[in-house]
Design a binder for these strands. Structure first.
Length: 200
DNA sequence: GCGCCGATTGGCT
DNA sequence: GCCAATCGGCGCC
């Protein structure tokens, strides 16, 4: 195995895989932000796959292409950031890179680095409320529209190799908060993690 | 142009 | 458990 102490940013080829596989393999990797010159980081414990043009719940479904989600059709490893309910930023990583609109939504992290900064940004000292939810984790890392469309490997927010989750420790369940294709089991969580957004 | 809905969250009943 | 915040996309007039 590689030396886990040495940071290794995930290569573009990682994101060139099928979206569902990327969603699974992102569990255990570490998101590192240096937005605003402040270092914050967390281990990914929850993701959701949105498959793009074939997925009714995806922003990349059929003819939903607009200027606003143009980055969703960019190269694998591109950040796609959108505003949810007019209030919260949510961040995705584009997969496959064939212009099919597939991406993985980051839904929860185990906070690892820069907890003070996260607490300031989030307005709470309760650790369980720092990164457990897509809007929360984006706020904790300082993510806004400024990240949208940037290439992960050269952006202010990178994803580093971590301890890979064993397949048996990955739980697949229905995606949260959607009405279309709600029963597709494309939400992935680390079994038993106390940092996920909701109990499975 | 107008109204409704959404990959959410936090505060209040 | 209910609902407001707040904005962009979409359907419909």
């Amino acid at each position: 195995m590689t030396d886990s102490r040495r940071a290794a940013t995930l290569p573009v080829s990682f994101f060139s895989q099928p979206t569902e596989q990327v969603a699974r393999e992102l569990l255990g990797t570490v998101v590192v932000s240096r937005i605003g010159g402040v270092r914050t980081a967390g281990r990914i414990v929850e993701t959701e796959a949105y498959l793009g043009h074939t997925d009714p719940a995806s922003h990349g479904y059929a003819s939903r292409r607009h200027a606003r989600n143009a980055s969703l059709y960019g190269p694998a490893g591109t950040w796609y950031v959108y505003l949810s309910y007019g209030v919260h930023w949510c961040c995705n990583l584009v997969c496959e890179g064939k212009g099919l609109g597939g991406a993985v939504l980051l839904r929860a992290l185990e906070p690892l680095v820069g907890l003070d900064a996260m607490m300031t940004r989030r307005g709470t000292t309760t650790r369980a409320l720092l990164c457990s939810g897509p809007g929360r984790l984006a706020q904790a890392l300082g993510i806004t529209l400024a990240l949208d469309g940037t290439a992960m490997r050269s952006s202010d927010v990178t994803v580093q190799r971590g301890e890979t989750a064993e397949a048996a420790d990955i739980v697949a369940s229905a995606r949260i908060g959607i009405t279309k294709a709600a029963d597709w089991p494309l939400r992935f969580t680390v079994r038993g993690s106390p940092w996920i957004s909701r109990r499975t």
